[in-house]
Write a protein that binds this DNA or RNA. Structure first.
Lengths: 205, 205
DNA sequence: CCTACCGATCGGTAGG
DNA sequence: CCTACCGATCGGTAGG
């Protein structure tokens, strides 16, 4: 009677997660095609052949990682928990929460870039089909209940919000690797969020 | 007396460019590590060994492509040509010019993503060291001559502008591959630019 | 600029 | 879950 609850994962499930954890680290450091099954096996503490008891192929490992480690599962509840009386406060808090979480787990952004760069977004489409129906309502609710918004189309608001976070994260990667960090002020996140906020809010707000 | 002018490139230089053109197409389709030297040779119409008369290694081809094909060389003069009486008109036109150019040559964005995903931005730093001193003055001039701006720091303005274009291009890639194109309105670029514009401009403008 | 080759490494599997 | 192996392909080179 092996229990299949969250609290007591099967040994096989544990090994599977160990493989995924090893794989995601290597993917992020090197990309997908530059990472070999032998490297994943070594990092996970298995022999090469052992991996194939848990995954049919290297591609299947990547797919599993994309699904299991994707940020929106963590982020959605965090956004919904975000507080603030005015919309400005609410969205400001939500943005900071999202970027803090993504920055602490740089996994996600990098993984997304790998997906686009090496797979032309092939897995991404399937993911969005799953995630979008859960994310859109959050923005629909915001549009309905907040009258201070200039942007009244939920999909446009969602796109602009995700785009703003993405652009901050990516320019942050670029800047931190270059000489631009000397010329860039320190409180960039505040300035960035301020521009966005001013962009979507009515002037009276 | 072989002339070395732009009008009459050496045969060797022509072959070198042919190799670069073949390589960039393959890189964009498959990424860097998934592209083989044999594929590049085939597409360029050479035997494998012939490539090594022009490039020492696969990595050197990628570096050459990054330098020679980078968009800022084309984009900088286009931005400077952008017209418009008000800042709103000027930036609106500049944005459309940039995005039109990048969309018609999807090379660039993809190449940048490959650079980050597969090289951790290693080549990018060197590039920015060259490009930043040429781009910053453009934004410095805008900040100085336009009083309608809320954003007064040139580097912040540059970052937000590049970030806005990047986020539009990347979300466009994601959306066009997914079911989201059904729920997304058609004139998204206008809405996107409008949010940004409203974000950086003073309310009186 | 091509032909023919090198050693190394790849993803994956058979068999236990 | 490991050992030992497979054919295929990789980046790169020697020699002409």
């Amino acid at each position: 009677m092996t229990a299949k609850t969250k609290d007591a994962p099967t040994k096989g499930e544990a090994t599977r997660l160990t493989i995924e954890d090893a794989a995601i680290e290597l993917f992020i450091e090197q990309g997908y095609h530059a990472t070999s099954m032998r490297q994943i096996a070594d990092k996970a503490g298995l022999a090469l052949g052992g991996i194939y008891n848990h995954f049919k192929s290297k591609d299947e490992i990547f797919e599993a990682v994309i699904v299991d480690k994707h940020p929106y599962k963590k982020l959605l509840p965090l956004i919904q928990q975000a507080e603030g009386e005015t919309l400005k406060e609410f969205l400001g808090n939500a943005t900071r929460i999202v970027i803090d979480e993504l920055s602490s787990q740089p996994y996600y952004i990098k993984l997304m870039l790998i997906e686009i760069a090496e797979f032309n977004g092939a897995h991404g489409a399937a993911f969005i089909k799953e995630a979008a129906p859960q994310m859109l309502p959050v923005f629909e609710k915001i549009v309905k209940t907040r009258k201070e918004l200039r942007v009244t189309h939920p999909a446009v608001l969602m796109r602009s919000f995700i785009g703003m976070v993405l652009s901050y994260m990516i320019t942050e990667i670029i800047i931190s690797n270059s000489i631009l960090n000397k010329v860039m002020p320190k409180n960039s996140l505040d300035a960035y969020v301020d521009i966005y906020m001013h962009g979507i809010l009515k002037e009276s707000a």
